[in-house]
Design a binder for these strands. Sequence first.
DNA 1: AATCCACAGGAAGTGCTGGGCG
DNA 2: CGCCCAGCACTTCCTGTGGATT
Length: 399
Amino acid sequence: MSLDEIFEHFVLHSQIFKDRERLLPDYVPEELPHRKQQIIALARILAPALAGSRPSNVFIYGLTGTGKTAVTKHVVRKLSEKAQEKVVFAYVNCRQNDTSYRVMAELARELGVKVPFTGLATSEVYKRFAEALDRRGRMMVAVLDEVDHLVKKNGDDVLYFLTRINEQLSRSRLSLIGITNDLKFTEFLDSRVKSSLCEEELVFPPYTAKELEDILQQRAAEAFQDGVLAPEVIPACAAIAAKQNGDCRLALDLLLKAADLAEREGASKVTLEHVKQAQREIEKNVTVDVIKSMPLHVKMVLIAVYLLEKEGARNLTTGMIYNKYMEIAKMLGMDPVTQRRVSDIINELDMAGIVNARVVSLGRYGRTKVIRLSASLKSIEEGLQEDLFMLGVTELVAR
DNA sequence: AATCCACAGGAAGTGCTGGGCG
DNA sequence: CGCCCAGCACTTCCTGTGGATT
């Protein structure tokens, strides 16, 4: 079979899919089940924009996969159809654009001002944005998704600037929609920023298993051929995701992966077994990918933790890990980083969910972090494989 | 009650890359 | 061209601290 034929076959003769796209994370469906209340609330808040007055700033809270982004995009899309040219909408994901510079550059770009992605002073970008907005003479609604990432890294300067920009504008207005999955996020904010950003607040509760089932059912109807799902598939995906804080994105991902697996092995039905396999794969892939993309010294610290655990050491401390790390560095002829840096690296590994670290006081024996691996040995091995090979220390792990 | 361990983690700075602007 | 900028990984120097031991 030629490549063309394979692709052709996939597109035209999929046993499983009718429209695979509908399960992808950035697809926003026409109907968003179990989010009517939030949709209406957000629409009410933003509606004044149609009449030319500035909507209140909104703050949206909710855990991952509770539909915050989907609802916001949905409402904004409807609104911009109605508003025609009167309102400019901008959407910035602050995880991808996690510096004040990049966020401002994105917003400016939305106004048709091109900003180089580095090279200018941040204050210069602020200025250009404000000027461009005033020149436009339009209302602007800016969505800052995952805004907590931005603030944790850069402080709330950008937000301070954006919430006060209306004072400098004569012909335009700016409204902000901040989205976060960190419920305690506002503690990081200056009280002035807080009060103006949180003029309105919306909370997105986690989906229940039942609600997730409804959502999956709706998407499945659009995405799959009739009758290809075994009856227990959707409830299983919903149940797994419901345990993970009702994360709908996970539920959809499970369904997609399970169906992909079925399709790849040429099965005519998606079964519970596919779902279980998909679950294992998702968990593994996340850690493997994270590990692969880590800088060298982070990997070396991880190797140190890995080896110590394999040797059967318990209650690892920062000091133990640092010593092991030094050994490894010496063996490889690398310049080791300082303990200060390793301390931060351990925190990074903790944040990535690969390691579990918590600070404890051992009284007379000091105050330190106790660290243990939280990812499986197998996924760590897989993530580190290439590097171990490259560094010629495979035998270290093979042992 | 005082001490003191083994770090935690903040602040500021360095050297480097990749890119403006005039 | 020379100078300026941001971001990253990292260093240097530092002050802070929970609680078992003295």
